[in-house]
């Protein structure tokens, strides 16, 4: 186990290194940080001074080394927009994103397991077909569109909930529901398919033959058996959410998390803040990946980690 964690950490290091190299090449080779970050009215002297300040006058390998060492010490430079260290902004916004993603995914887990299990009891039945249709619909809807529709219905028409913003529990409802839609659909489909497979296995027949009730079979046997693939899927979903659609949901609902901050940073040409966000998210992805593998191993000792 410790061996495995070390190996995964090393692999995670490679990921972060890969992200670093990509960001470096994109910003320094393809793009020009000076013209991106300084206003158009900046004089040549100001441009040269800024280039020297962030080390652009050095040869590329030296720049890359400096870039790397800065990252290791979590020194991403000052955010131009907020006028304070970029990493400070990131750590301030990170809990908001964690709250949103946690609420959304938690809701998805609570909804999808019973839904998928009920659908799997009678494949092809009315309930099953309804659940599958809803799942397909959920996977087809873009989050930004669903979010706007939800605002239109629940905030504008019915006036039950605030349109956007942050602060009270009511502010969390619509963003969390919107974020939960894709994982609900994906989890439900997965639980349903795995349960159908599982319920056709001989051990279920045996359990039924000796008089075990169906709810008990589900609870004691089948649900446990699909726990590991479910865990893997939810970890993967958390990663997809963090690196993707959380940005969209936060933008729609003006939720002050990392995703909204990333969009604002890019709009303002705040390269340093954007870099800090990309790195922190990349590191989070690596950590979640390792945590999921370790959890799977401790649930099911048959899993070989390599």
């Amino acid at each position: 186990m410790p061996d495995f964690i070390l190996r995964r950490l090393f692999q995670g290091l490679l990921v972060v290194l890969g992200v670093t190299a990509t960001v470096f090449v994109v910003t320094r080779v393809f793009g020009d940080p000076v013209s991106l970050m300084l206003p158009l009215s900046a004089t040549d002297a100001q441009r040269a001074a800024f280039a020297a300040q962030i080390g652009l006058d050095q040869p590329l390998p030296v720049q890359f080394w400096r870039f790397l060492t800065d990252i290791v010490t979590l020194d991403f430079g000052d955010s131009l927009w907020q006028r304070r260290p970029a990493i400070e902004v990131v750590f301030e916004r990170l809990p908001n994103t964690a709250l949103l993603v946690g609420a959304g995914l938690g809701l998805a887990v609570l909804v999808s397991i019973p839904l998928g299990a009920i659908a799997a009891l009678r494949p092809g039945g009315l309930v099953d077909r309804l659940v599958v249709s809803l799942g397909l619909l959920g996977l087809a809807m873009p989050q930004f569109w669903l979010g706007l529709m939800a605002i239109m219905v629940f905030a504008v028409q019915l006036k039950w909930l605030p349109t956007s913003g942050f602060g009270t529990a009511a502010h969390l409802v619509l963003p969390a529901l919107t974020l939960a839609m894709t994982p609900i659909a994906r989890f439900t489909m997965m639980v349903r398919a795995a349960m159908i497979d599982e319920l056709n296995k001989p051990y279920v027949q045996t359990a039924r033959a000796k008089g075990m009730s169906l709810p008990r079979i589900l609870r004691v046997h089948t649900l446990r058996n699909i726990l590991v693939p479910f865990l893997a899927l939810s970890g993967w979903e958390a990663i997809t959410a963090l690196s993707g659609y959380t940005v969209v949901v936060e933008t729609v609902f003006a939720w002050p998390g990392l995703g909204l901050t990333a969009v604002q940073a890019i709009q303002r040409g705040d390269l340093f803040l954007m870099q800090a966000i990309v790195f922190v998210i990349a590191a989070l992805i690596v950590i979640i990946g390792i945590a999921i593998d370790v959890a799977a191993k401790s649930i099911d000792p048959r899993i070989e980690l390599n």
């Binding site: 995670g12 990921v15 890969g18 992200v19 990509t22 960001v23 990663i239 997809t240 963090l242 690196s243 993707g244 659609y245 940005v247 969209v248 990333a262 969009v263 890019i266 954007m274 966000i277 990309v278 998210i281 990349a282 992805i285 690596v286 990946g289």
Partner: peptide, 9 residues
């Protein structure tokens, strides 16, 4: 394992 949309942005 790259953060997809963020890198695209």
């Amino acid at each position: 394992s790259f953060p997809g949309i963020l890198l695209i942005l």
